[in-house]
Design a protein around this nucleic acid. Structure first.
Lengths: 347, 347
DNA sequence: TGTTAGCACTCCCAAGCCCCGAGTGCCAAA
DNA sequence: TTTGGCACTCGGGGCTTGGGAGTGCTAACA
């Protein structure tokens, strides 16, 4: 964005107080209120002058002539970037997070409770992507014969995740053949990264095609397909949409409709969240910044979470631009850490 | 409910036309309109007399003095029970269903697309419970050692479902021990029903406690815990909530809030759906009939779906009482069949 | 030069009002 | 039993009005 023009301390302070108040009350704040609220001994008239300046800079605006001022997106931006003092979470809230997530559970359940927690604590919508590891170690492969040519393939990765899928082989395989195939794969690839495995499989598949060890071909093919399906996808869990109904500014039917359709559709939200995988720490999209029109009225606060040092997913909250960033940011941050810890295989 | 008092054919016909029209237009329908709409050659005044009767019987009501009439819950009930002529689905819609669901996919994905389909086609909210078998045959058990005392237990049931969970053993088990344990379980129990397995495990656990074959004890214990976790739960997938925003009658913020909170909460909706497991065929809850206040303004149309003759789940749609039952009922019915078929392990 | 008081002005919004249309209930006649 | 007629009711749209909140501007003041 354009460089921030120098802004007097007083103006900054006023912007801060105005934003805080607007976030708290949800109503445009006028010069009189502001004069009272801020510590400074200034008359409303003076405040008005400052406000006019802030408005020229595009940091605040007024919905109509005789209403107070409201922060613009740029105003919020400056607020969160340089005016906000984020204080860490209350202890009991951290504890609440921990105790809710330190249970032993499957990753999906953990993700679901994390998303529920986020929405409960922030009273906004909570969203958590399912963890997905780029660098995943294959631990074990198992093929179980089903009826006909169908085979159930089970893939254990990363010591605790289990992927499974049904694949159809080109011809009927005996249980012994399947056993052999899985033995081979386990011997060759246990502990290797999925990506490596895949690469090697593809190469070997080409090499062995000549002497047509059909058994092996099938096995590789199966494994390849399993890996394929294990890698695709990406999904998230959303909770607390109902909370968004509390906010008047979102409550127009058309806004709501767009928003909820986006939640249903998932594609866009996922894309937005995926952007946050690579940035470390909390990231904030205010209003139009997200680049998605249905989120124009919303802000999104995200943080990636990691397992064993590798970022595997993103979580965050979605709410009106007028959200309590001060509170939300540390919550999102802490939840990401706690979820990461809870997902960690080491005890 | 009270027995339906005899109702002249004419009155029935008028109720039918009125309900159909109200469902279509969403506005109270008056005597003039009704006189025009229905085939009968009757004057508005006559219609009014009939209307007064229907109102006395509690089948219709008017929102206020000078509005037309609207069906009451009892009116809708009579409508769907005895006035409705459900014609089967259009062929192309059945095809659409089939082609969308006949893909090979995991059960969860199938459920998700079924729910998406329901909501797309009906333009209401679609809901599908995850399939859960009471009578499930254990096919295979596998224990994989993780770090420390943790063990990953994998349970294959019904030829294609895989359950897995992490359990912590009381002491460190060697891979060989685990192998032994799973071998034992597989030999003893493969093909048996989960319930049977559980019962036998409990009994054997008691008997062997004396001579304390610790290995076996641990194995049984583990299996028991896995079974336990496999049996609990119950969840559903919801799609198309956004569609509900189209309906004015639901668009009050408080109604919406209640509704969406119920979706989030899941408990109540699940309980309602569970009731439908035992009734065969399509079941309909109109307004308050569901017994849940947040669904007072809604109707729910459900149908159980089954795999191999056993009912394993319920699907349905949720929408305003003023929904196109005529269209929705066959859709729900057909989707249940198609989903059941898609989940069927036999090819 | 920065701050303040005063003042005219703008705009939103809620309240009140009126009127219209739609639809009813009832009665008396066919 | 059906119908036409008529008085009545009610909700909603459109209009006006008054008040309140807040602004911008200007002129005076420290």
């Amino acid at each position: 964005m354009a460089a921030i023009p120098e802004l007097s301390d007083r103006a900054q302070h006023l912007l801060k107080v105005l934003t805080e108040r607007y976030i708290r009350e949800g109503q445009p704040v006028g010069s009189r209120t502001l004069a009272r609220d801020t510590g400074l001994k200034l008359s409303p008239a003076t405040i008005r002058n400052v406000m006019a300046d802030l408005e020229d800079l595009g940091l605040v605006e007024s919905p109509h002539t005789s209403a107070g001022r409201v922060p613009t997106v740029a105003g919020y931006r400056m607020f969160v970037d340089s005016l906000l003092t984020v204080r860490p979470l209350d202890l009991d809230e951290v504890e609440r997070l921990k105790s809710s997530l330190e249970i032993e559970a499957e990753s999906r359940e953990l993700v679901e409770s994390a998303s529920g927690l986020l929405s409960d604590i922030t009273r906004l919508a909570g969203v958590v992507t399912l963890p997905r590891r780029e660098h995943a170690a294959l631990q074990r492969v198992e093929f179980l014969p089903l009826s006909g040519r169908k085979v159930l393939a089970i893939l254990v990765v990363n010591e605790q995740e289990v992927q499974n899928c049904i694949i159809e082989t080109e011809r009927l395989c005996s249980p012994a053949e399947l056993q052999q195939a899985s033995n081979y794969l386990n011997e060759q690839f246990a502990g290797k990264e999925l990506a490596t495995v895949r690469a090697r499989l593809v190469r070997e598949l080409r090499e062995t095609r000549d002497h047509l060890d059909r058994m092996m071909g099938t096995a590789l093919d199966m494994a390849d397909r399993v890996l394929g399906s294990a890698e695709e996808g990406g999904d998230y869990v959303l909770a607390g949409q109902a909370n968004l109904l509390e906010f008047d500014e979102l409550c127009s039917v058309s806004t709501l409709r767009q928003l909820f359709e986006a939640f249903d559709e998932k594609r866009h939200i996922l894309k937005l969240l995926d952007q946050c995988v690579h940035s470390e720490g909390v990231q904030i999209f205010i209003g139009e910044e997200s680049g998605y029109r249905m989120l124009d009225e919303c802000s999104v606060v995200t943080a990636p979470y990691s397992v064993e040092g590798e970022v595997v997913g993103v979580l965050g909250v979605i709410g009106p631009t007028r959200m309590a960033y001060e509170r939300v940011i540390p919550i999102v941050d802490a939840t990401a850490r706690v979820l990461g810890a809870a997902l960690n295989p080491r005890d």
